[in-house]
Design a protein around this nucleic acid. Structure first.
Lengths: 210, 210
DNA sequence: GAAAACTTGTCACAGTATTCACAAATACTC
DNA sequence: GAGTATTTGTGAATACTGTGACAAGTTTTC
């Protein structure tokens, strides 16, 4: 793996390629070209090749890529060769839905604890797990070697929760609250903003009116 | 509004600025500088000014921006001055969570129908609404003048559902299924991929190991 | 009311990301 | 086995995005 700085857009696409390839594999397809991938995920063939080229030469000229091999490579690159344990903070509708979200499981993510500080939610059962009080978080993080936490709490609580999660030993946060979190530099944070894409649609529809 | 091509990243940030400003307004703050916004959402001040500059001159030199005015402008730009009616297809965990997602409501989105073709889900109640069979979709789209639909069904079903939604008269789709949809050019589609950001985190954590 | 302190809007520049185009390698055809 | 058709990997060209720097305008200070 080269020391080059990899564009985040490349990682994003790699994740998408990887899952597309798994679907091809499930269909029994063994070989694929950059053009096939490109068409399947909606980018250009050159883009696919360039993205892969950051990490090595995985194809054969005149032939294409071996699907199973390329899955292995993309999974390895994305750090998904071994399964990850996650914790979920927030046992509301969104948190609950994410805990049972099958795609996470398919990609090797396993949620090992659900936490909330709302007394009405603590003790509730979600997918075979009991919702625990937030105070239990540090213990679970330590015991299960959890490095990544998901935040699915209301915006107002998100910053405090994030602070506590960092203090609990988590190294990376996936934040579903629509606010920008303040965390130490060494903590990785990515936001999933459920409204943004919707507002891109309304922007475009409004533009069409003209 | 100029005829210039606006980067989608600008629209994305505009949506984020707009919601950040609403929080400032709620706190009673009346004036804000590009630097304040920048700090609040995690971008550079020049970026904020440039993004706004695509659409006009909203600030006062030496002073900054009036919060209420800027909210109005951003909301207008994003096409959110009037409320939007949406339909949700997919009444599983994710679909149900999104139907009750408060942030959508806050931004003027109102879900007027939830549909599914799974008999075990039809008839179920979600947020005061009865889950309807998919066949009812065209009627609701027409009667409520719905232009945007949300897809929260399993990947396997997503393409067929999307086809049906287009045929039902919808003009824009927000797709939560992790696959790339094939739709006519005139239909706007945006994907919300819940796994991608998680895999960016694992990529970065895996990189740190080195 | 002149000077100092801010802050926007914008143009030029720097930096990134994407596309193009083609040599290199492989497979298929007859 | 020579010729044709594929398809990758990649350097160069292009397009796009973000940053820096500063003039222009506003407010505050003394």
């Amino acid at each position: 793996m080269k020391a080059l700085k990899i564009p985040e857009a490349t990682i994003t696409r790699l994740s998408i390629y990887s899952r597309f390839l798994k679907r091809l594999d499930k269909k029994g397809i063994t070989t694929v070209s950059s053009g096939d991938i490109a068409e399947g995920v909606g980018v250009s063939p050159a883009q696919v090749r360039k993205d892969l080229a950051y990490f090595g030469e995985f194809g054969t000229r005149g032939v294409g890529y071996n699907v199973k091999d390329l899955i292995r490579y993309t999974v390895k690159i994305l750090g998904l060769s071994d399964p990850w344990s996650l914790v979920m903070v927030g046992a509301g509708n969104l948190g609950s839905a994410l805990v049972t979200y099958k795609e996470f499981k398919d990609r090797g993510f396993s949620i090992v604890g659900v936490f909330d500080n709302d007394l009405t939610k603590i003790g509730k059962r979600i997918a075979d797990m009991e919702v625990l009080p937030l105070e239990e978080l540090p213990k679970v993080v330590k015991e299960s070697n959890v490095r990544i936490g998901i935040i699915a709490v209301p915006s107002k609580a998100a910053q405090d929760i994030a602070d506590f999660m960092v203090k609990s030993g988590l190294e990376a946060l996936l934040n579903f609250a629509p606010i920008s979190l303040n965390v130490p530099d060494e903590i990785e944070v990515r936001n999933v903003d459920l409204s943004v894409k919707l507002e891109i649609l309304t922007f475009n529809l409004a533009l069409k009116e003209k």
